[in-house]
Design a protein around this nucleic acid. Structure first.
Length: 423
RNA sequence: GUGGGUGUAGCUCAGGUGGUUAGAGCACCAGAUUGUGGCUCUGGGGGCCGUGGGUUCGAGUCCCAUCAUCCACCCCA
């Protein structure tokens, strides 16, 4: 217990950090190009924010939150998602008073008390974006394309975008009633989960994996055919914008997202290489979220992408990740040359911007060579009695095995040139 | 929260029907003309057999519980 990471959490060890930096770097780069700026919010918030923002009847809130009391008796919750906190920050700092729209992105850990599974963790990481203060359909397209280009940038090819419109408060509630009427006769034939959904969230029945439920809803009317004028126009415009960009997508009228706040556009990006948790990311428009948590009526839209899943998909698709090389040079000693002498030389190289290190365990020259080889260091500097007497050092190229004598005074310049050439 | 699989060395795994000091490969460390890596050879360090109970003369092996992990459901990223 003592030396075990808690359930559903894990360490990202040095050999894997490079992949994370690559993915996070891609996200930042893509966002910069798309005109988004980074925002960082706390990892915990007042519990009420999620109760009201995400919705009390959602699974996230009803059974997956890490909620605790602090010493001041406040109920706090480790953020289960990023949209509500960013929306809160936007309101708190009255960013609606500035030039609109506000386009931001975030990268960081989220927490959900779920049972761990392939691609699902209790602490996981999301990259997400939010746009506040613009309800134009081209914003919807902007957001979706950013997500797609991000995945492409990672080298993923098995990526599918599914789009739907879940309507607004007006047309959705009308459709919901219609759907319940249509399904009234068939409720008994649905699976246990769907029987429950019939009352709580009938739209979700359309999304059920159960084949039987799918059959029973075969001829039921779809949301997309019952949108109000405004929502229908918006949805058409979103699709037009995507078409104009030549982006492919699948209209899935059965797509329903789990969070309460979505309106109009809802989308999900999936990969078939992921197993049961096939969703790489998802998002949508939330035109009433801000007012729900106490702000003015301001439209918003965003997405969240699971970084672990992106990494998993990259692994499954065998995408090679460019990893930055570590050390440029390793300083080895032979004979009676002291460790402090080696440290001084190492430091001299570092001061010139060369990534260098030395042996700290008093190992034999042979062992030092072996170490440098394992660490894939290109250049080895050998400091020995003979060299030092002459004010020289031996520089060995580990790649082709050649070596030459270089004067101590010219060592830095010599290596700088070698390292530059090697890169 | 529900169902199923699995827990033996750092990693991947062997250890028929319970029976002496629990093994292999890889990894790690050290040697093989005392100043030179990769290949090869030799040797070495490492194991509360997940944990706690129970059955038994005797448990890595059987039973129960528990924890962890994996997969699926639910849900989602």
């Amino acid at each position: 217990m003592l030396i075990k990471a808690p359930r559903g959490t894990r360490d990202i060890l040095p050999p894997d950090v490079g992949q994370w930096q690559f993915v996070e770097g891609k996200a930042a780069e893509m966002c910069r190009i798309f005109g988004y700026q980074e925002i960082r919010t706390p990892v915990f918030e007042h519990t009420e924010l999620f109760l009201r923002g995400v919705g009390e009847v959602t699974d996230i809130v009803s059974k997956e939150m890490y909620t605790f009391q602090d010493r001041g008796e406040r109920s706090l919750t480790l953020r289960p998602e990023g949209t509500a906190p960013v929306a809160r920050s936007y309101l708190e700092h009255k960013l609606y008073g500035e030039t609109q729209p506000v386009k931001v992105y975030y990268i960081g850990p989220m927490f959900r008390y779920d049972r761990p599974q392939a691609g699902r963790y209790r602490q996981f990481h999301q990259f997400g974006v939010e746009v506040f203060g613009a309800d134009d359909p081209t914003v919807d397209a902007d957001v979706m394309v950013l997500a797609l280009k991000f995945f492409r940038g990672l080298g993923l090819s098995d990526v599918t975008l599914q789009v739907n419109s879940v309507g607004c408060s007006a047309c959705r509630s009308a459709y919901r009633t219609l759907l319940q009427e249509q399904l009234r006769e068939k409720v008994s034939g649905l699976c246990v989960d769907c029987t429950d959904r019939y009352e709580k969230n009938p739209l979700r029945i359309l999304d059920c994996k159960n084949v039987r439920c799918h059959e029973l809803t075969e001829n039921v009317p779809m949301m997309t055919d019952h949108l109000c004028q405004e929502c229908a126009t918006h949805f058409t415009a979103v699709k037009q914008a995507m078409d104009k960009l030549g982006e492919t997508y699948l209209v899935n009228p059965r797509l329903v997202r789990g969070l309460d706040y979505y309106t109009k556009t809802a989308f999900e990006i999936t990969s078939s290489v992921l197993g049961a948790q096939s969703s790489l990311g998802g998002g949508g428009r939330y035109d009433h979220l801000l007012s729900t948590i106490g702000g003015p009526e301001i439209p918003g839209i965003g997405f969240a992408i699971g970084l672990e899943r992106a990494l998993l998909a990259m692994e499954a698709e065998k995408v090679s990740i460019p990893v930055a090389n570590t050390l440029d040079a390793f300083v080895a000693t032979a004979g009676d040359v002291g460790a402090d002498e080696a440290l001084a030389v190492t430091m001299m190289l570092r001061d010139a911007g060369i990534a260098a290190d030395k042996d700290y365990l008093g190992r034999s020259l042979k062992a030092q060579l072996k170490f440098a080889d394992k660490k894939e260091v290109r250049f080895l500097i050998i400091l020995g009695d003979e060299e030092l007497k002459l004010g020289m050092a031996t520089v060995r190229d580990m790649k082709n095995g050649t070596q030459q004598s270089v004067s101590m005074t010219g060592l830095t310049a010599h290596l700088t040139a070698l390292v530059k050439e090697a890169k």
